[in-house]
Design a protein around this nucleic acid. Structure first.
Length: 298
DNA sequence: AAAGAAATAT
DNA sequence: TATATTTCTT
């Protein structure tokens, strides 16, 4: 209900409004350089292919200005070879779209579906037909129209972030071909789920106490804080800050739930709670870090 | 046992 | 919708 005074420890230049999604921590940013190792990837590897050497040079310079690691190429066969033989060499591939040949579009659609690279089409053709054709036929994630403004190049990393985020929710499982249509009789094991017995279950220790009747104590929660029931943890700013401090002090590399929990020293907080929070926070921090990192280079 | 990812629930 | 919790895998 009441927010503690914010202590802004990290001044970023503003998060892109486009699709960066909001601020994970409100106005309270952790110091990312403390959270992440120093050798965090400084740039993304981008392959740029265009027949025009002069334009290629322009793109290269702009991309380098944004700290991308650029490899240029003005020969189609070379570009294809690079992509095919070194599938782990690039994060992004910017390919010039040449309408006069279908080979290129075929190549990209083929290789694009089996590689983990974000393809970006560059073309001077701004017609709807062309855009639709390339975007629907290939796995390209963007289509930039020449002349390309530097602004359009600055943020191309967002596609990598998107892919990163997207892959953690693919439920597909396309193994078989046609089967599995009705193979769902795994069935409902009745019951258990929602019930969740409130009692202490069989901890083993004291199950047999013939007499004893200390039934005791605080069955009624006269004070909610010590209630034995698992309350839903609310990660308010204060608790979250405590979490961040713990991560920083234990060192990002070694920050595992157990250690973080110890360091936090908060009552009624379980390792699972911390693990869960770490899971989501890591994702947010990671992507935000990437965005900020590139933003700072503009 | 516990970390991590994914699924599920609120 | 967001995120907290539970389940499942390693």
């Amino acid at each position: 209900m009441d927010y503690p005074p914010m202590a802004v420890t990290f001044d970023h230049g503003g998060v892109p409004a486009s699709d960066g999604g909001g601020d994970p921590f409100g106005d309270q940013h952790p110091n990312f350089s403390d959270v992440f190792p120093r050798n965090f990837p400084e740039s993304l590897r981008v392959l740029v292919f265009d027949e025009d050497p002069a334009y290629l040079l322009i793109l290269e310079r702009h991309l380098q200005a944004f700290r991308y690691r650029v490899t240029t190429c003005n020969e189609e066969s070379e570009a294809m070879t690079l992509l095919r033989d070194h599938r782990n060499m690039f994060d992004i591939a910017m390919i010039h779209a040449n309408n006069s040949d279908g080979d290129r579009i075929r190549f990209i659609s083929e290789i694009g579906s089996e590689m983990d690279i974000s393809f970006i089409i560059i073309s001077k053709d701004d017609s709807v037909e062309s855009v639709v054709k390339w975007m629907s036929t290939t796995t390209a994630c963007d289509y930039l129209i020449k002349p390309i403004r530097p602004e359009d190049l600055r943020m191309i990393f967002k596609h990598v972030v998107k892919k990163f985020l997207g892959r953690r929710r693919s439920v597909v499982t396309v193994e078989g071909d046609q089967e599995k249509a009705a193979a769902r009789e795994k069935s409902s094991s009745v019951g258990d789920s929602t019930i969740r017995s409130p009692d202490d279950d069989q901890a083993g220790k004291r199950s047999s106490c013939p007499n004893a009747e200390v039934v005791n104590e605080e069955d009624h929660d006269h004070d909610r804080v010590t209630s034995k029931k698992r309350r839903r943890v609310v990660w308010d700013t204060e608790l979250h800050q405590r979490f961040l401090d713990a991560v920083n002090s234990v060192g990002f590399e070694k920050a595992v739930p157990k250690k973080i929990l110890e360091q936090m020293n908060v009552e009624n907080l379980s390792r699972e709670n911390v693990a869960s929070h770490l899971q989501v926070t890591f994702l947010l921090v990671y992507t935000t870090h990437i965005i900020i990192m590139f933003n700072n280079n503009k």
